Simulated scan of single mutants.
Amino acid sequence: MTTATLERPEVRDNQLEHVDIKVIDTDVHVEPRSFEELIPYLEAPWRDVPNLIASVPFSRPTYRTLEGGGRKDAYPKVGDIGSDPDMVGQQMFVDDPTDYAILLPWSFRGFTVDPRLDTALASAVNAWLADTWLSKYNAENRYVGSISIGIDDPMAAAKEIDKWGEHPGFRQVVIGHYGPRPFGHPIYDPIWEAAARHNLPIAMHFRGGATQPLGWTSTGPLQYFVEYHSLIAPMAYGAHLASWICNGVFDRHPEMKVLFIEGGFLWYQPFIDRLERHWKRTGQELGLKKTPHQYVRDHIRFATQPIEENTDPHKIATLYEEANARELVMFSSDYPHYDYDPPSKALPRSLDAEMKTRIMYENARVIYDLPKTRPVDRFDLAGGAR
């Protein structure tokens, strides 16, 4: 298996021109052409199970997304959306150009009822991603990988992180929002310990599970797609955020970073304000080192899409300033889904230039340890001068 590196090539005789990094997209979904493409990467005995594809007990979403969930212009003639490297490269790096795309494979959509199978599927996705989008399709080193894990078996998940943690193409661990307990619970410590060993941030992206459909809340399921799309991620992310804080996970792993993807970010401010309001009295039993606001500042980041907007440009700029978007927010497009946000139009115009710079690339560049410049490549030449 070949591997790719994100280190910049050596410049010799000034023949290699470089450009400054201006856009890093933290939420790009890619797919195998079909489930059959993953089968060679499955380990035995799963690879040899008859009728595996038909028998895999994947979760089924309760809600149907608009336009089938994808951009109409992002479906290739052959294969699933997000599976054609030529189409993805053109749309990501030429049409409305991004410098680096952080990949979150969408093929491992949720959990089955078997933690062993979850681990096998996650392992196959990681091997497939390393062999394709981080190698064969990555001559320009524009793609950055995420390690998929099965959350229901923390020890096996930790081993999977150790397996890929030093691969130069993988720069984070990706998890879903669903689990039998909030993620600060001690049963999950092996996962956070493994990520900390390799200095990898944790990215959370919502997805359903075999025993919990998308849109399930503590009071039962939501009825409509608009409810689910607007509410489910902030509700779940808030529960996990409180659990990570109150269980002292960030004290045990002081360098740990968590990125909440595709859930907005303005919701966190009143949530943390409420937690902090009661902190001095009710938080005494926890014996923690910081306040909730300090934990968010030091350990949490948010992705923009779906970004909160407001018709009053001055009001939205004030809200972003109050929520410390300058330090906490990173750009994401959610490519290739129907609600894709193009880099050129994603942020409210009323934000100041320094905040836009931090959101569009600088915050992510620091989190993922990416370079400040990159070599000019075929995508730049195809799109002309920036």
Rank of each mutant, 00 (worst) to 15 (best):
1 M>F: 14
2 T>I: 14
6 L>D: 06
23 V>G: 05
27 D>F: 00
29 H>G: 01
34 S>Q: 06
34 S>E: 06
37 E>W: 03
42 L>F: 04
44 A>K: 13
52 L>H: 05
56 V>S: 04
57 P>M: 07
60 R>A: 11
62 T>G: 09
63 Y>L: 13
72 K>L: 14
75 Y>D: 07
78 V>I: 13
79 G>M: 06
81 I>P: 06
83 S>L: 05
84 D>Q: 07
87 M>Q: 14
89 G>A: 04
97 P>Q: 01
98 T>C: 12
100 Y>Q: 07
100 Y>V: 02
107 S>A: 14
110 G>E: 09
115 P>I: 07
119 T>A: 09
123 S>M: 07
128 W>Q: 06
129 L>E: 14
131 D>H: 09
135 S>W: 02
137 Y>R: 10
140 E>M: 05
140 E>F: 04
140 E>W: 05
146 S>E: 03
149 I>Y: 01
151 I>L: 15
157 A>Y: 00
161 I>W: 05
164 W>L: 04
167 H>N: 15
168 P>C: 05
168 P>K: 00
168 P>D: 00
174 V>M: 08
178 Y>Q: 09
181 R>K: 12
184 G>E: 05
185 H>S: 05
188 Y>H: 09
199 N>W: 07
201 P>H: 03
204 M>A: 08
209 G>M: 00
212 Q>K: 14
212 Q>E: 14
216 W>A: 13
218 S>M: 13
221 P>N: 12
221 P>R: 06
223 Q>E: 15
225 F>D: 11
226 V>H: 12
227 E>P: 08
229 H>F: 02
230 S>M: 12
233 A>S: 04
233 A>H: 00
239 A>V: 12
240 H>N: 10
241 L>M: 12
242 A>P: 07
243 S>M: 13
243 S>D: 13
246 C>K: 11
247 N>F: 15
249 V>Y: 07
250 F>C: 02
251 D>G: 04
252 R>E: 13
257 K>F: 01
258 V>S: 02
261 I>C: 13
263 G>Q: 09
263 G>C: 08
265 F>Q: 01
266 L>E: 11
271 F>E: 09
274 R>M: 11
278 H>A: 14
279 W>I: 11
279 W>F: 13
283 G>Y: 03
284 Q>R: 15
288 L>H: 00
288 L>N: 00
298 D>E: 06
329 V>L: 15
333 S>T: 03
335 Y>A: 02
336 P>A: 12
347 L>V: 03
347 L>S: 00
349 R>E: 15
363 N>H: 11
375 P>F: 12
378 R>W: 03
380 D>I: 09
381 L>A: 10
383 G>E: 07
383 G>W: 08
385 A>Y: 10
